[in-house]
Simulated assay, not measured.
Amino acid sequence: MKRLIKILFFAFIIKPIVFIILGLNIKDRKKLPVKGGTVIAPNHNSHLDTMVVMSLYPLSIIHKIRPVAAADYFMKNKIIAWISTYCIGIIPLDRSGSSSQEELFKPCHEALDKKDILILFPEGSRGKPEQMTRLKKGLFYLLKDSKDTPVTPIYMKGLGNSLPKGEALFVPFTCDVIVGDPITILESSKQLNNELNEFFNQSSDSV
């Protein structure tokens, strides 16, 4: 049932908004991972970021794409929780600090074991429109014991102007999307974040 709801949600609502009303310029789409047990790491400027990344995938595997999202926001009431669970298929992350690191990432590891494709924003929360914020260590801690799990970075430009933080309505604004080469998890969060920052900076200069 969840799979059908998610397919219908993206087929009739999200994909028409993203590809018809919004518009995308996509570079290196062929680099998108299509086999599960992997992580996508995009920059984060807008609520539309998740929808855009998921819309890059065909409906046949949309159920395998699982965004990692803050439980305190996306599970805060019944309506948002239902949409987040059934329409988007998030993996809720407890940011209260009450869980151990093992407990915190357990649902993510279970999803990777099921060959799902996770979306995790290395910046954590959304930044100011079209501005990168400091990358956090969450992605490294998630995968430090699974260093064979590849991470595919994605850079997006334009969505911060379409639906910036604090706004409820979006305006049509063409978005550039660049898919990077997969990165193997390195020995420290600093090394991993340096690799991601290098990709984000190069991509920003190219658009």
Rank of each mutant, 00 (worst) to 15 (best):
M1S: 14
M1V: 13
M1Q: 06
L4K: 02
L4I: 14
L4C: 03
K6I: 05
A11Q: 13
A11N: 05
F12Y: 15
F12D: 06
F12N: 10
I13P: 05
I13L: 15
P16F: 02
F19I: 07
F19R: 09
I20V: 14
I21D: 01
I21C: 04
G23N: 02
N25P: 00
N25H: 10
K31R: 14
K31N: 12
P33D: 00
T38A: 06
I40N: 03
I40Q: 03
A41W: 04
P42R: 00
H44M: 11
H44Q: 08
H47R: 01
H47A: 07
D49V: 07
V52L: 11
M54N: 06
M54K: 06
L56I: 01
P58C: 03
I61S: 08
I61R: 08
I61C: 09
I61L: 09
I61Q: 08
H63V: 00
H63T: 01
A69Y: 10
A70E: 07
A71T: 00
F74W: 15
M75F: 07
K76R: 12
K76W: 03
N77V: 07
I79G: 01
I80G: 01
I80Y: 03
I80P: 03
A81I: 04
A81Q: 10
W82C: 06
T85I: 05
G89H: 05
I90E: 13
I90N: 12
I91T: 03
P92N: 10
L93M: 12
D94C: 04
S98K: 13
E102H: 09
E103N: 10
E103I: 08
L104R: 07
F105Y: 11
E110Q: 14
E110N: 14
L112G: 12
K114V: 12
D116P: 13
L120K: 11
R126T: 00
G127W: 12
K128V: 13
P129F: 02
R134Q: 08
L135V: 14
L135A: 09
K136S: 13
G138F: 01
F140A: 10
L142I: 00
L142P: 10
L142H: 05
L143C: 08
D145I: 00
D148G: 05
V151E: 00
V151G: 02
T152V: 06
P153T: 07
K157V: 04
G158R: 10
N161M: 07
P164L: 01
E167V: 07
E167C: 12
A168M: 13
A168G: 10
L169F: 13
F170H: 11
F170S: 12
P172L: 04
F173L: 07
F173D: 05
V177P: 06
D181F: 04
I183L: 15
T184M: 10
T184R: 14
L186V: 08
L186T: 15
L186Q: 15
E187R: 14
S188L: 02
K190M: 15
Q191D: 15
Q191F: 10
N193Y: 05
N194E: 02
E195D: 14
N197V: 13
F199V: 06
F200D: 00
N201W: 12
N201M: 14
N201V: 15
